[in-house]
Simulated assay, not measured.
Amino acid sequence: MDNNPEKWRTQAWAHLTKLRQESPLIQCITNFVSMDIMANVLLSAGASPAMIHSIDEIPEFTPKAHALCINVGTLTTDWLPAMKVAAETANKEGKPWVLDPVAAGATGFRLKACLELLGLKPCVVRGNGSEILALFKGSVDPTSKGVDSSHESTDVVEAAKSLAQLSGSVIAVSGAVDIITDGHRVVGVQNGVAMLQKITATGCSVTALIAAFIAIDPLHVIEATSSALSLFGVAAEIGMQMSNGPASLRTHLMDSLYGLDEGTVLNRVNITNL
């Protein structure tokens, strides 16, 4: 797509309209912290969440899902085999899946798990700057602060491009400017508010939203990912105008996402080729 803001905005509205019409089923294998907000963000956008993580159900259920979201936030040795089986099943069924490598560089166990999942070819990997850098370097970060990033998204563009080329996945880096790249193209999304950092699992939620948008447009992964990030950011901007702090923003974010209309999307979506 050329660098025409109107085309990005029109496409974002088309994506949201299709999502609301089709209500894709999104299976989420995610952490205990994010389950509630992730499911409610998907519902607010128009998708249908399924929080199914038992390895006993995956062979039967995952083929029914339109996309899969795997998030390693509260990772244990019990959950990892289920994540792998789900990813393998999604690949076998031709269903897109998205990886959220939460705190990938924090410990050796976590990094190894994320690299193993990366090897199963996720359609998109969405993380913050530190998480993407840890995957690219393949090493534990001794200065890691867990889920908090010590790197801006714009500082890791080259690492993200290289990781995309090595993995075959589209890499999305959250930050003040969200960066999306397939290793060649680089797209920037400039929607959102800083207060999102004060609400746990908003990053997890936008990863699930990316899975939903890819489910309805699997042939245009960069565009679908950009739409998801931008519309989530727009909803946060609108919600922030009515909020007094993180708790009220959490509520208004979902209300705003649910209520997004064409005029708002065409006026506020801010996506550009970089």
Rank of each mutant, 00 (worst) to 15 (best):
S167I: 13
S167E: 07
L166D: 14
S169I: 11
V98Y: 02
G127N: 04
G108T: 07
P96Y: 00
V147A: 14
R126S: 09
H184Q: 12
G119A: 14
T107M: 08
I179T: 05
E131N: 13
K145Y: 04
G127T: 06
L118K: 05
I171A: 01
G188P: 01
V186D: 00
G105W: 10
G108V: 08
A208R: 04
C123R: 10
V98D: 00
T154I: 13
G119E: 06
G108H: 09
E158V: 05
C123S: 15
L111K: 00
V206M: 15
K198W: 12
G119C: 12
S153H: 03
T143Y: 04
D141I: 05
A194P: 07
V147C: 11
V189D: 06
K145Q: 15
G168T: 06
V147N: 02
E158A: 14
L166A: 15
V140K: 01
I180M: 05
D100N: 13
K145I: 10
V187F: 01
Q197V: 10
V156C: 11
L163H: 01
V186R: 00
I199R: 12
S162H: 11
T107A: 12
G168S: 11
N128L: 12
P101Y: 02
T207W: 07
A164T: 02
K121D: 04
D148W: 05
N191V: 01
K145S: 13
A90E: 01
L209F: 15
V98L: 14
K112G: 01
F109K: 11
K92N: 07
R185F: 00
R110T: 07
I132F: 03
D178Y: 03
M195A: 14
Q197L: 15
A208H: 08
G146A: 11
S167T: 10
K198T: 13
I180R: 00
K95V: 12
V125L: 05
S205I: 03
K92V: 03
L118M: 13
T143K: 14
T207Q: 06
P142A: 03
H184L: 03
A194R: 09
A172Q: 06
V102G: 09
C204F: 10
Q190V: 08
G138H: 00
V98S: 06
A201S: 14
T89L: 03
L196W: 11
L196H: 09
G119L: 13
G105H: 13
A176K: 13
V156K: 06
T181G: 04
E152H: 10
E152W: 05
I210R: 07
A103E: 13
I180V: 15
K95R: 13
V124W: 01
G175N: 06
G188T: 04
E158L: 12
I171K: 02
L209S: 11
G188S: 10
G105C: 13
T202P: 05
H184G: 01
E131F: 02
T154K: 11
L117Q: 05
A113F: 01
S150H: 15
H151C: 15
N128Y: 05
W97P: 04
E88G: 08
A164M: 03
S130G: 14
L99G: 02
A90S: 14
D148Q: 10
